[in-house]
């Protein structure tokens, strides 16, 4: 596989290989000069048709620490606004010379289509509600390294809480965590929970308090304010009262449970307390690991020409 489009591309040995390389990258990132010449002369183009400073910076940092050249294209500053098609954009950049495209788009499936328009590797940096595979990898990596479980999540009890329906992070994480052996509980109100997601190792509930004492990982999803405005959620603070993380709920967690969030957080909706007060918070570790994991993905795709082990 020369692309990373979906967590479905990631079998267990491939994930283990990426995690091992990510360990190398973490070592490099801890140095005073965190840069290696591995991808010298390669070009990584980040093509973001949807704004995302965090993910873009993470990918571009990863590319630069591997000495790749970076090319940056965003819809707001580009000719896409003038009606240029995605295909034209990709073909044009390919002609300039790109070894890997990092693609983000508000529409599900766009990175899949991009693979048909270029010979370069394509990394999905988030498409619609569909997938965000490097987020799933960095989350799985963070859990394994925090809990010391090696390269597996076998038996690890994870609760994913919030807007699952509109979340590419949820789709990616549910799939990858389950493949790595985790026992995943999805916690959401019915209208944020699409049908058909339950499966082996995956259970569904809307009772957060029942789940908290037993989980090792509490994964809070972002709930966009627009959803609230669109009349999707009940009036007032009812969503936060039922599904938000507040101090009372934080105390219900076991002492060594960790709390994660893909960012950016919506204070007052899913996060009803100061995350700095959460001893189990690994939110910044996720961000740090994000660079290591994206370096590992780029190194494997561009260095070895394939993701797999």
């Amino acid at each position: 596989m020369k692309h990373l489009l979906s967590t479905h591309d990631l079998d267990v040995p491939t994930v283990a290989a990426i995690m091992n390389v990510a360990d190398h990258m973490s070592e490099i990132n801890a140095r005073s000069v965190p840069k290696v010449p591995a991808l010298l002369g390669r070009t990584v183009a980040s093509v973001f048709f949807e704004d995302s400073t965090r993910t873009r910076v993470s990918f571009e940092t990863a590319a630069k620490r591997l000495s790749a050249d970076t090319m940056s294209f965003s819809a707001s500053t580009s000719s896409v606004n003038k009606g240029e098609s995605i295909r034209d954009t990709i073909e044009t950049l390919s002609a300039i010379g790109v070894d890997a495209f990092v693609v983000r788009h508000a529409s599900s499936g766009v990175p899949v289509s991009v693979t048909e328009w270029t010979d370069a590797s394509v990394v999905n940096a988030g498409d619609g509600w569909h997938q965000h595979p490097t987020q799933a990898l960095l989350d799985a990596y963070t859990i394994t390294r925090e809990l010391g479980t090696g390269n597996t999540l076998a038996g690890v009890r994870v609760a994913i809480v919030g807007d699952i329906k509109h979340s590419r992070v949820a789709r990616s994480n549910i799939d990858l965590f389950a493949r790595l052996g985790a026992r995943v509980t999805l916690v959401a109100p019915g209208m944020l929970l699409p049908a058909g997601l339950a499966g082996p190792g995956i259970t569904v509930t809307d009772a957060l308090d029942d789940v908290l004492p037993d989980v090792e990982v509490l994964y809070m999803l972002r709930v966009q304010r627009e959803r609230m405005d669109a009349g999707l959620l009940p009036v007032g603070g009812e969503y936060s009262a039922r599904f938000g993380l507040d101090e009372r709920r934080a105390r219900m967690l076991s002492g060594d449970a960790i709390v994660m969030h893909p960012g950016p957080m919506n204070r007052g909706i899913e996060m009803v307390m100061d995350p700095a007060e959460l001893p189990g918070s690994r939110i910044l570790a996720q961000v740090r690991n994000g660079v290591s994991v994206r370096m590992a993905v780029l190194f494997r795709l561009l260095g070895d020409g394939q993701l797999g082990a």
Binding site: R168, R171, P194, G196
Partner: peptide, 9 residues
């Protein structure tokens, strides 16, 4: 349905 849920559309 199931396919749509998985695809995120």
């Amino acid at each position: 349905g199931q396919c749509c849920s998985a695809m995120g559309v």
